[in-house]
Design a protein around this nucleic acid. Structure first.
Ligand SMILES: [Mn+2]
Ligand SMILES: [Mn+2]
Ligand SMILES: [Zn+2]
Ligand SMILES: [Zn+2]
Lengths: 162, 162
DNA sequence: GCTGAGTTTGCAATTCCATTGCATGTTATG
DNA sequence: CATAACATGCAATGGAATTGCAAACTCAGC
């Protein structure tokens, strides 16, 4: 009778770990969707999962490329659904194409609460959410009633400046 | 021999005043163009004069409508020229269409200096420059080097809130 | 399991704005 | 006037967002 080698055991353990990780990941994405009242379809789970992976915001074209051969319109409509349910927020960074990133705070169908600064790197073109950088107070002429604020900073990002 | 009535004299004086006013206006627009190294063509004077009249920023479509039957592309290229020479600045107010407004400060071909807040009214859809509302200080994570800032506030404007 | 209503998806088409190419018209200058 | 440089008008293009619609799918109720 022969025993498992350490190498084989390691491979089996890694495989089991990956299975569990993928399951947990899927479970997390699924639960996140359900928690926001969105039916967890295959496409939506793929889109949301990919968005959760990102450091920087993605455009529809980015997602289309990354998730090929998924249909662009389906991704587009997933994003709109997510946005309306407070799962992701669209970012108008001045480039002319909307970028999307996951909401950090407890946003919901009532609205988005995590108002933060966005940063666009003129070198790598990436768009980052900066949740730590709260938008400061500013004064408006009398009579103007603010409701939403969008602050976009252009410059060189951490990675490119490093 | 009969004399002028007071009424006729008044009309003549108003007419003369208007002639002089229009001349001065034209002279002002022409000088403004020349001062920024832009040949004062008929179209450019019309476009710039109309922009100087406005309280709120205008889109290309707005200008096209107001200045009909002037050619849209010619207006478009006038605006680009003005922008490059520091006469007007384009505003990305999040509506997806660029609005244009005259520069208040001493901008030039080197760049635009009058960085200010822009306000979009969700009721009347007008976009206003708020030159008095300076963009406040804000903090960025270490490593991010800011170069340009764009702050757009959405809400209800002075007129609509009245 | 089968059915039907409601939802989601994929493809085609449309709309809207920004931008470019090119031939013609205009201006400035000697 | 001649000529080069610049400005204009029309047509065409490009890219992104959005919509229409029919087929595919999901799921509760039989
Ligand atoms: Mn963000
Ligand atoms: Mn402005
Ligand atoms: Zn960068
Ligand atoms: Zn208003």
């Amino acid at each position: 009778m022969h025993s498992f080698s350490v190498g084989k055991l390691r491979i089996v353990l890694i495989f089991m770990y990956l299975c569990i990780a993928v399951q947990m990941m899927k479970k997390n994405v699924e639960d996140l969707l359900k928690a926001h009242n969105v039916s967890p379809t295959a496409m939506r789970m793929i889109v949301l999962d990919h968005l959760l992976d990102q450091q920087a915001a993605l455009s529809l074209a980015d997602l289309e490329k990354a998730l090929a051969p998924a249909d662009r319109i389906t991704i587009y409509r997933s994003l709109r659904t997510f946005e309306s349910k407070g799962l992701v927020h669209g970012i108008d960074d001045g480039s002319g194409v909307t970028k999307y990133a996951c909401c950090a705070a407890d946003c919901g169908p009532e609205g988005h609460h995590d108002v933060h600064v966005h940063f666009v790197c003129r070198n790598c073109q990436e768009t980052y959410c900066l949740p730590r950088s709260r938008i400061p107070e500013f004064t408006l002429p009398v009579g103007f009633q603010p409701e939403e604020v969008n602050l976009v900073v252009r410059g060189v990002c951490q990675v490119c400046a490093g």
